[in-house]
Design a protein around this nucleic acid. Sequence first.
DNA 1: TTAAGTGCAAAGGCTTTGCAGCATA
DNA 2: TATGCTGCAAAGCCTTTGCACTTAA
Lengths: 155, 155
Amino acid sequence: MSRNLNNVSPMHGHPWTSQRRLLLELLHDAEGYVDAKELYRRASARDESLSPATVYRSLNLFKELGLVDEMRLGKVRCCYEIKRASEHQHLVCQGCGKVIEFQSPYVRKLIQAVRHEYGFNVTKAQLYLEGYCLECQEKEKSDSPCAATQGKHHE
Amino acid sequence: MSRNLNNVSPMHGHPWTSQRRLLLELLHDAEGYVDAKELYRRASARDESLSPATVYRSLNLFKELGLVDEMRLGKVRCCYEIKRASEHQHLVCQGCGKVIEFQSPYVRKLIQAVRHEYGFNVTKAQLYLEGYCLECQEKEKSDSPCAATQGKHHE
DNA sequence: TTAAGTGCAAAGGCTTTGCAGCATA
DNA sequence: TATGCTGCAAAGCCTTTGCACTTAA
């Protein structure tokens, strides 16, 4: 994924600081979700002096500017993701924690249905599916049959 | 909504205490989402001695037993809802905060599609749509045109 | 009677905020 | 140069946990 973070500022008048550049760069490279804590971990590895406060402040700014999407992926914490052209949704595996992105025309149909039936003007759609990925299903099948097909989960 | 909380214990061997009965009763009466804080507020109005710790511990137990669904409704906190027979999803209005429940056949189709295309075994589907309800759209239309159609939101 | 739950209070973890110094525009 | 951002540290919240007492079974 290419990026032009050094030349083009999407900050709408807000100063283009090295911290914000670093954080946006990491968000791009993540190619998916990260939570604030993980983003701080990665960022501080490249800039020791960076503080958690800056991470939180920056994420809030990015959110306001519409640069990132905030979402929940089954954990308690918020996750953040660079906004991209294509809409996509997430599958989260309860077995291995893997996050799979997917698209489906049904999402769009669903939004249309909601608009028509409830007069609700949808500005943000977030679908979250939990379950077991193919690999975990097969792994569990060989260990203990049926386990992977249960909806029960501890954490 | 009728309930048989006094006679039937869904606690699977766990003691049926007055605190748990009260909390489940309130969850039923809520007929929708409540977060832990709000649940505590309501519960302590009826039992002054009840502690927040009990609310959290009970919610975790209910979750384990599959009595409630835990979900996110746009806020930082978790919301809880008594599990019901019918699957339903949520629309959250950015204007007035109202939560509208809805059902759609597209959700089921989407789950099927995911199963077929990714081999993903879905155990939980949670759809979260944000936007503006009909009333807020009309309210905004008379105050300042266009406002309700923007995706921008501060909090 | 006994295992389990509860209340209380303290601790833990994440996030926000005040303030002085510093960097971007 | 001036506005606004950053780091630091402290404060704020929500949630969890340890312990002694109480309660359901």
